[in-house]
């Protein structure tokens, strides 16, 4: 499936809207879109499950079992429509799954042994702190943001770097690393001049370069977020919500 990269206003069909609007798409399309979304956004689920489970093995089983059940369900479109956002849908569904699994025992957690998605749990395990002061929900939201931004950066870097021969690609890779910090915020005083000196470019050229990079970053981020909401108009809201959730400071236990 190709990634929508144009501005969110230009396309109507986002992945989550594909899943949620049953009337407009075949069940195969819906299934593919959902699987694609799950493949990206499983780490937050794992982080949440990890807090609820006794150990990392149980958390892995919970997540795989959850996906097994999620992907074989037929009523997902109805359920999804009721919850506007993929994020909200996932966390609620996972909570239900965890409750059910506790009642049914280990076999249900594993979902009958099948592993529908191949997921790098070891990497996910390294990235979370199972004993931090955050609530499982806070961890879920934070991991969501990190996952989302990782995805965006992967695409942004690919686009920026993949041009010309190997030699040029190496040079562009280096340039990307130097320019990258400017995406997060207005560069501190004088730093643009430093970048210009490092790259052997004029101040004006660096300014233009940063501007383009940021603009492209923004497009990719918004497209990525649009994929997880039912309507493109919800993108601004979702970003604001994620921002608020991420800034919420953990309570000191």
């Amino acid at each position: 499936m190709s990634t929508p990269t144009s501005s969110p206003r230009d396309f109507i069909t986002t992945r989550w809207s594909l899943v949620a609007c049953a009337g407009d798409s075949s069940s195969d399309e819906r299934h593919a879109a959902l699987a694609q979304l799950c493949k990206v956004y499983w780490p937050p689920l794992y982080a949440f499950a990890r807090r609820r489970a006794a150990n990392d093995h149980e958390a892995r089983d919970l997540v795989q079992g959850f996906f097994a059940r999620l992907l074989e369900r037929n009523d997902i479109a109805v359920a999804a429509r009721e919850r506007g956002r993929f994020r909200a849908y996932l966390i609620t569904a996972l909570k239900h799954h965890i409750i059910n699994a506790a009642e049914l025992g280990r076999a249900a957690k594993r979902g009958g042994g099948a592993a529908p998605l191949s997921l790098d749990f070891d990497d996910a395990e390294r990235r979370i702190d199972p004993s931090g002061p955050e609530t499982p929900e806070e961890i879920f939201d934070r991991q969501w943001v990190v996952t989302l931004l990782d995805e965006v950066f992967t695409k942004l870097r690919d686009e920026f770097v993949t041009r010309g021969d190997k030699h040029e690609q190496d040079a562009r890779e280096e340039r990307f690393e130097i320019l990258k910090p400017s995406i997060a915020g207005a560069a501190p005083h004088g730093s643009q001049a430093d970048i210009a000196a490092t790259l052997g470019l004029t101040d004006g050229a660096v300014r233009a370069l940063i501007h383009r990079l940021r603009a492209r970053y923004r497009e990719l981020l918004r497209a990525e977020v649009a994929d997880t909401v039912a309507h493109p108009d919800d993108v601004d809201d979702e970003i604001a919500l994620l921002f608020a959730a991420f800034r919420k400071r953990p309570r000191i236990a």
């Binding site: 931090g132 934070r142 921002f243 800034r247």
Partner: peptide, 17 residues
């Protein structure tokens, strides 16, 4: 714990608004 490419995720989200 959470950083993306060594950058602040909050600032990165804000840059998308």
């Amino acid at each position: 714990a959470s950083r993306v490419e060594g950058l602040c995720p909050g600032c990165l989200l804000r840059a998308g608004m």
